[in-house]
Design a protein around this nucleic acid. Structure first.
Length: 437
RNA sequence: CGGGGCGUAGCUCAGCCUGGUAGAGUGCCUGCUUUGGGAGCAGGAUGCCGGAGGUUCGAAUCCUCUCGCCCCGACCA
């Protein structure tokens, strides 16, 4: 992509409304624009990141055997009356009346809808287990939206729902998602710690929140100091095998959210306990028959008797993750994207747009990168070098290739790694080689 | 939902107290000179001063109402 033809409205100064670093950087880097409180438009650069995050989530859900569907954002109120949550949810639910005076709502989550779909289609234990997920916009009318996309009212969420015949199967489904989540966040370069969590209004008895430690986090969390030195799972897993060892391993070290943390009962000695702030990026629940019973999601068992299915739900805040990644990956100059979610892999800077030799060399390098399938943002604008350097640092692409008259005379380009700031001179071929691998 | 604050140029903000021609920096446009970490000079464009009422000869400024946004707290993927 040529920057001269791109839509990248950068801000030189910090907008006053943005108080935390990810919000500031997302606005300054031209990733999002606020539409109203807690509601954002995603501009090209931000949207690319959102889609990369979404794709990683999708791949890991698929790998764990979950099946993607797409449910609507608007749901009928009746379903929520069946589960009893229509009244419970209160003002956080955006309620809508259509032209026929029918009560509708903008979905804050989808347990009711998925249960309705499931009960209409599955009648036999033979069709279990199943896990259905979708990645869809949700709306929760938060009292106080804040922190940019980290606590918006409208947000993109992956929510998966598992259906099993019995508690043992349900635990296996839970473990699958548990492991898939470890892999998902690890792929994004994040250390997300699974913590025992309160089930809240979703219900149930088994629940983990996946928390990224960050000073700006909204939740108070407690964990064993050893977690700080522990790497998260990144290896391949057989999802059909026994996952309980993985679950045990990644829950053996103490980690709990504030609601679940009891200082008196805590097994970790005080000097070994970390008290920190965290960002919740995922939350998994096993809630048994909380919805299947009132909504009559039942199957015939082997003996012909009706059995209410055991359910779980599994959420990842996809749009929140974009902010969370920036909270975890930035420096004074701007964002430092992990390669897996970077909007482009490399920023190509032509230092002298007006110089024939530079332009030819840069155009040529750009063509070769494209041919090699390397995602590149090419700054071909006629701007001063300082402007280009700072813009490229701000948007945080993992690598920069600088082509200027000084290097060209020696037949080299400059290759810079954003993360450590190291710059090396090398031939264009060598730089191309580095980037295509 | 309680408490606090802010709405003036694309952005950051001054002006408001004490009513009298709409401002600065930055960005934007044009031209020239520049060019390895946010360049220089010259010229130029940009505002229903959030909205509605009111007071006044006269309102960005005073009063009333209203809408929006932000922050702290309680609540939450």
């Amino acid at each position: 992509m040529r920057l001269s033809a791109y839509f990248l409205p950068l801000l030189r100064e910090n907008p006053t409304e943005a108080q935390i670093v990810s919000h500031r950087l997302m606005l300054r880097a031209g990733m999002v624009r606020q539409s109203s409180a807690g509601i954002y438009s995603w501009l090209p650069l931000g949207f690319r990141v959102l889609q990369k995050v979404e794709q990683i989530v999708r791949e890991e859900q698929d790998a764990a055997g979950a099946l993607e569907v797409l449910m609507p954002t608007i749901q009928p109120a009746e379903l929520w009356r069946e589960s009893g949550r229509y009244e419970d949810y209160g003002k956080e639910m955006l309620r809508i009346t259509d032209r026929h005076e029918r009560e509708m709502l903008y979905g804050p989550t989808n347990e009711e809808l998925i249960t309705d779909i499931f009960r209409g289609a599955v009648k036999s234990y033979r069709d279990l287990p199943r896990n259905l997920y979708h990645i869809q916009w949700k709306f929760r009318d938060e009292v106080r939206p804040r922190f940019g996309v980290m606590r918006g009212r409208e947000f993109l969420m992956k929510d998966a729902y598992s259906f099993d015949l019995d508690a043992k199967g349900a635990k296996h489904s839970y473990n699958k998602m548990f492991v898939a989540y470890l892999r998902t966040f690890a792929r994004m370069g994040l250390k997300a710690i699974p913590m025992r969590a309160d089930t809240g209004p979703i219900g149930g008895d088994l629940s983990h929140e996946f928390i990224i430690l960050a000073e700006t986090g909204e939740s108070a969390v407690f964990c064993d100091k050893a977690w700080l030195q522990t790497d998260v799972l990144g290896t391949d897993v057989d999802f059909n095998g026994d996952l309980e060892p993985f679950f045990k391993k990644w829950t053996s070290l103490y980690a709990a959210t504030e609601e679940m943390h009891d200082p008196k009962a805590c097994p970790v000695p005080e000097d070994q306990l970390v008290s920190a702030r965290g960002i919740e990026v995922g939350h998994i629940f096993n809630f048994g028959t909380k919805y299947s019973k009132p909504m009559k999601a039942v199957v015939s068992g082997p003996d012909g008797a009706e059995i209410a299915v055991e359910m779980g739900s599994y959420g990842i805040g996809v749009s929140r993750l974009v902010g969370a990644i920036i909270e975890a990956c930035h420096d004074d100059a701007g964002i430092v994207w992990p390669e897996s979610v970077a909007p482009f892999k490399v920023g190509l800077i032509n230092l002298r747009a007006g110089d024939e030799k530079c332009r030819t060399a840069a155009d040529d390098f750009y063509k070769k990168l494209n041919a090699a399938g390397v995602e590149v943002l090419y700054d071909d604008r006629d701007e001063s070098p300082g402007v280009k350097f700072s813009a490229m640092d701000l948007i945080g692409l993992p690598y920069q290739v600088v082509i200027g008259p000084r290097g060209l005379d020696k037949g080299v380009v400059e290759f810079k790694s954003r993360r450590d700031g190291k710059r090396e001179e090398m031939s264009p071929e060598a730089a191309l080689n580095r980037l295509s691998t």
